[in-house]
């Protein structure tokens, strides 16, 4: 019997290291509980991530194209980010134009907004109760005017 066979015989003895029947019964019980808990939880996100991971694992030879695909997706995302606001602006201008051509009701509403005017405020000048507005009023009050004449 050679040395290799001796070693193999010794290593084979490791199969006598067993945890016992009770261990396996407890294992199955724990697994059932875990399985039920997972089913109840139903974490869609983790399942999605795991399946994506598995899909990548299965890609095999095509795995080298993954970085290219990721770069393309990033570029697309950046492009959409910059194009997005411009679309919003053009959409709002189109909306204003369409409001202008919205028919008689729309026109009336627009006219009301334009023709709305506030009344002119009436300004009272002290010691000249007869003057109701600034138009045509002397710059100096009457007392000052008389003093000016005396001078």
């Amino acid at each position: 019997m050679n040395d290799s066979e001796d070693v193999q015989r010794l290593i084979r003895l490791k199969r006598y290291e067993t945890p016992g029947e009770a261990y396996f019964e407890g294992f199955l019980k724990d697994f059932k509980e875990r399985q039920r808990a997972e089913m109840l939880r139903g974490s869609a996100r983790s399942l999605l991530l795991e399946r994506i991971g598995m899909w990548f694992d299965e890609l095999g030879g095509a795995r080298r194209f993954v970085p290219i695909g990721a770069m393309a997706a990033t570029a697309l995302g950046i492009g959409l980010y910059f194009v997005g606001p411009q679309r919003e602006e053009s959409a709002s201008s189109t909306m204003t134009a369409s409001q202008g051509n919205a028919g008689p009701a729309g026109e009336a509403a627009a006219m009301e907004t334009i023709l709305l005017k506030l009344p002119k405020p009436k300004v009272r000048i002290p010691e000249r109760s007869d003057v109701s507005s600034r138009e045509g009023a002397p710059i100096l009050p009457a007392s000052a005017q008389s003093r000016l004449r005396e001078l």
């Binding site: 001796d6 010794l10 003895l13 006598y16 290291e17 067993t18 945890p19």
Partner: peptide
């Protein structure tokens, strides 16, 4: 794990 005592009846163990 504990070693199963039936190892003492194993021919490989007896020979070793």
């Amino acid at each position: 794990n504990d070693v199963d005592l039936s190892i003492e009846n194993d021919p490989d163990f007896i020979e070793a």
